[in-house]
């Protein structure tokens, strides 16, 4: 099923209503719930950006990359280096080249720069890798993730190596995270459900037919990969400015698995699936993480079970793979259009 099929004014009204709702939640939330929950919501917004951007390549074009977190890492480090205050740079990164050490960018330009660096990297890396298919592309992009990790650990002039990269200003507030999430989802939805975005699904469903009608596959896959990497860089920057201190190990296999499980459980071919996956996995693991510390229910005493929440998450993942391999949402979308009268859309794609 395609995305929203609304007449333009109705679509704009709905979009405006969603914006107002998001703004209201953003303003009201800190007054309604405690700080811990606000932090959970910020992380959820960042994860939505990362998972939805991963879904564009992995789901819509069907090239399952395990290297997305590599771009997140590059984004976090790029914006961290750019926005670190100059005095901190002298203290923490004495070997930084002069042209980088002499200035410090505000949050927004640093984030956009991180996205652009990741997009450029994706163009270089993707040009060869997007030729591969199936498990080969997954293994090759996993190789990319490992190479990024090794380079970050060894480029200690820029990254302090395996040690913690600290001192990044804590600027990712709820409005920033929400704002970037709305921008990301809007841009991704506009791309994925545009005539150009239809090509993504064509090359996924039938590469041979796509070529037969004159559609070359590499540029299509590559463009999805580059757009995904841009938002991975943005999300990485947000995450870096949320954590304030991170190391290459923060952006490695465990985070990859967390994001992949959100994407797969929610549904790979759907942007609302990405949102649903993030919400479900976050809520489940937050609840389980609290149970994991052990419970004392008067009569029953449950000892702490570290690792149990991840096991439950892994089992959820496998059950989805067995019973609903295309995820909870499949390739359907929850769009504002569901609540309004649809234009007749003719046959399905």
């Amino acid at each position: 099923m395609s995305g929203p099929a609304l007449s333009r004014p109705a679509g704009l009204i709905v979009f405006g209503a969603v914006l107002i709702l998001v703004a209201a939640v953003t303003l009201a939330l800190p007054h309604m719930v405690n700080n811990y929950l606000v932090r959970v919501v910020i992380v959820m917004c960042i994860d939505v950006i990362l998972v939805a951007s991963m879904g564009l390549g992995n789901g819509f074009t069907g090239v399952f990359s395990l290297g997305h977190v590599g771009f997140v890492a590059v984004g976090a480090y790029t914006s961290g280096i750019l926005s670190l205050p100059v005095t901190m740079k002298h203290a923490f990164l004495p070997d930084l080249p002069h042209w980088l050490a002499s200035f410090s960018l505000p949050f927004l330009p640093a984030t956009i720069a991180a996205g652009l660096v990741c997009a450029a990297l994706a163009a270089v890396v993707g040009a060869p890798l997007m030729r591969l298919s199936g498990y080969f592309v997954s293994v090759a992009t996993l190789g990319f993730l490992i190479i990024v990790n090794v380079v970050l650990i060894n480029a200690s002039d820029f990254t302090r190596g395996a040690r913690t990269f600290a001192g990044v200003p804590l600027q990712t507030t709820l409005p920033w995270a929400m704002g970037w999430m709305v921008v990301t989802l809007t841009v991704l939805a506009r791309i994925a459900y545009s005539p150009f975005g239809r090509r993504f699904r064509v090359v996924r469903e039938d590469p041979i037919a796509a070529r037969a009608v004159g559609l070359s596959i590499l540029p299509v896959r590559l463009s999805a990969f580059i757009v995904g990497a841009f938002f991975a860089g943005v999300g990485g920057s947000l995450y870096g400015h949320y954590l304030g201190a991170f190391s290459p190990a923060s952006f490695y296999l465990p985070y990859t698995f967390a994001l992949v499980s959100m994407l797969v459980i929610g549904g790979m071919g759907s942007i609302s699936g990405a949102v649903l996956g993030v919400v479900l996995v976050t809520v489940t693991s937050e609840v389980l993480r609290n149970l994991e510390r052990g419970l004392d229910l008067g009569v029953i005493h449950i000892p702490p079970l570290y690792g149990a929440s991840q096991i439950v998450l892994g089992m959820m993942f496998i059950l989805v793979m067995i019973f609903r391999p295309s995820g909870l949402m499949g390739d359907r979308e929850v769009s504002p259009g569901l609540f309004l009268r649809r234009k007749p859309t003719g046959e399905r794609e």
Binding site: Y135, S138, S261, Y306, G307, Q310, I311, F317, M321
Partner: peptide
């Protein structure tokens, strides 16, 4: 999941490794 697409098999095994490693930690 036998016979499912490549990626489904790969992801299932990724989930299994996640479970086993956390079982090891547990």
């Amino acid at each position: 999941v036998r016979g499912a697409p490549d990626v489904t098999l790969l992801l299932t095994s990724l989930a299994v490794t996640y479970i086993l490693e956390n079982l090891g930690i547990l």
